[in-house]
């Protein structure tokens, strides 16, 4: 990726930090507030739904036009597995970066592929989950739980998707031999974003799925 700075002529920056790295950290700082607001919105409306289905309890809900008893929505095992996969992907991207820095292309391509596959798996899990929840009676506008849950995890999923596109682009570059050690920073910046997306999930998982 091209250097978007006018400052090849300014090689040592005032702080010694790389300008693009500082920019992604700044952006991540701003994104924290974005997710903090979405998570707060979920928590404010926790337990405020007027009808079911509910996350952890059986409840009265409308299904196929009839009032029935709905099962709790969340199924913890699948999402726990998805969480683990996402966590491992953060580890894999570190190994890929290590490979890039060492100039070890095989290591770079192998671990970066693993990262992308993990990301795709997580997105797949989320799509399955949404589909499954919908058929259990939780539509987008069914109740406040549904709206705030789908909005929060949907925005997280969008971030994961963008991360996968970014990392897949880096993978294509790596296969074409365009991520040599001196350009490993390009991968490091993508990896920082990926870690952030992962960390957000580390907050969402206990707060949304585990906390009763």
């Amino acid at each position: 990726m091209a250097h978007d700075t006018a400052h090849a002529l300014h090689p040592p920056t005032a702080t010694g930090l790389d300008t693009r790295k500082l920019a992604i950290w700044t952006f991540i700082g701003s994104e924290c507030l974005f997710f903090a607001t979405l998570i707060s919105n979920y928590l404010v409306y926790k337990g405020e739904s007027l009808v079911g289905p509910l996350p952890h309890e059986t409840s009265q809900c409308m299904l196929h036009g009839q009032m029935t008893t709905c099962e709790p929505i969340f199924e913890i095992p699948l999402v726990t597995f998805g969480t683990a996969v996402l966590l491992f992907s953060s580890f894999f991207v570190v190994l890929a970066l290590n490979g890039a820095q060492q100039g070890n292309r095989k290591k770079l391509i192998g671990w970066l592929s693993a990262t992308v596959v993990c990301g795709l798996f997580f997105i797949g899990m989320q799509v399955y989950e949404f589909y499954h929840f919908y058929h259990k009676g939780l539509g987008y506008t069914t109740n406040l739980f549904g709206s705030s849950f789908y909005t929060l995890t949907g925005f997280h999923g969008t971030h994961v998707t963008l991360g996968v596109i970014w990392l897949a682009t880096m993978l294509v570059l790596a296969i074409r031999g365009k991520v040599p050690p001196e350009k490993s920073l390009n991968l490091e910046i993508a990896a920082l974003y990926w870690h952030f997306v992962d960390v957000v999930w580390i907050v969402i998982f206990p707060v949304v799925y585990l906390m009763r």
Partner: peptide, 17 residues
């Protein structure tokens, strides 16, 4: 979302505040 998709985040009739 409230206006275009029918959620009730700020609509009291759906429990929103």
């Amino acid at each position: 979302l409230d206006r275009s998709f029918g959620t009730h985040f700020f609509v009291p009739s759906g429990g929103g505040d």
